[in-house]
Design a protein around this nucleic acid. Structure first.
Lengths: 190, 190
DNA sequence: CATCAATCGGATGAACTATCCGCTTACTGT
DNA sequence: ACAGTAAGCGGATAGTTCATCCGATTGATG
């Protein structure tokens, strides 16, 4: 279907290569065009929006996120799986600056991205459901809300030094546990 | 010292009035000039940077923040004072969009703002110190870090609906408590 | 009311976005 | 090998917003 012409594929690669070195939160398409030795029109042909470009840059990260969610879901201990996933997800956010924008967007440019996101959210929904049932996660938080809290922590870490990461994530993890948590006991609905 | 000329004072007021209606995170000085019926140069004369304008807009909020910190410090129960302050501070952040930028800036345009901030931070430092000692706050978090976490929560709330506020703040509050809080020696006054 | 420093206004240039369209080029079939 | 053609390319360009500069204006002062 998408038999890209040879020169087009080359341009696309050039653009992506340059874009990868740029800040995903502040992509200047014209500047990228110049650095990639390509016309502005070419960039806009391949990526009509800077968000489209961010999506493309984030694809690989999305793949890793899905794998990570699957692995966490497979953990026999939902609480442990959940916490591990949480930490890994925060790391992913910190590595890939565009992840937050891609995950939060409710409209996706690329269908591939949309499908990946749906798959990821499905997996996470299931993971969190089990975490809630096992008493590892507050019952009054939806998956979408947890996602936003992760974005908040990402924001907080970016405001300061990377060294904040561990304490901040610890803080988040602790905050997500049910209040008045009694170790491993039954969730006892408060 | 600052005997502002009559017309200058008038312009200044006009500008501030218009600016108060704008989004503090996205001030367009040229647009404000137009709406205020004033030349662009006039705006830039009074506020050389959009940050300077934000500072001015945030002055009142800073005053409220200081009062709030003082009140919390006066609470005989440091834990309760701390938690109350935390909730109020988050509210302040949500009301005044520019607060985060002003608090996080390490260089202040206005000396008045600098002095206010210093006073506030001093008060908060003391409040948090007592909170830590009383076991209401993790010992491995500095005041600056807590401030960043508050900014993170603000970010998370803004990503979604305002209804998230209460749960999110609960989450933060819970996360800030010392880990393994085995109620041992917990001074809780309830 | 003459003087002048403070203030004003907006023309202006720089930076960036995003579109449009004539020119060029890689593929296809013969 | 080569002509035909659709896909792709490049960059001129119009539209924005930012921030500066400076000649014209005006409020304060003696």
């Amino acid at each position: 279907m998408n038999a890209l012409r040879a020169d087009a594929a080359r341009s696309r690669e050039r653009i992506l290569e340059v874009a990868r070195r740029s800040d995903p939160k502040d992509l200047r398409l014209n500047e990228i065009a110049r650095e990639a030795g390509v016309g502005v029109g070419t960039v806009y042909r391949h990526f009509p929006t800077s968000h489209a470009l961010v999506e493309e840059l984030t694809m690989e990260t999305l793949g890793r996120l899905r794998a990570l969610a699957a692995r966490a879901s497979a953990d026999p201990d939902p609480g442990r799986g959940f916490e591990a996933a949480l930490r890994a997800v925060v790391d992913l956010h910190l590595e890939a600056g565009g992840l937050q924008a891609v995950l939060l967007a409710n409209e996706d440019v690329s269908e591939e991205v949309g499908a990946l996101k749906a798959s990821i959210f499905g997996e996470l929904e299931e993971l969190l459901r089990r975490a809630r049932e096992s008493g590892a996660l507050r019952r009054d938080l939806t998956t979408a809300q947890v996602e936003r809290l992760v974005c908040g922590i990402e924001h907080a870490i970016r405001l300061g030094e990377p060294e904040d990461r561990d304490v901040f994530v610890d803080t988040l993890v602790a905050g997500l546990r049910p209040p008045a948590s009694t170790a491993a006991g039954a969730p006892s609905t408060r």
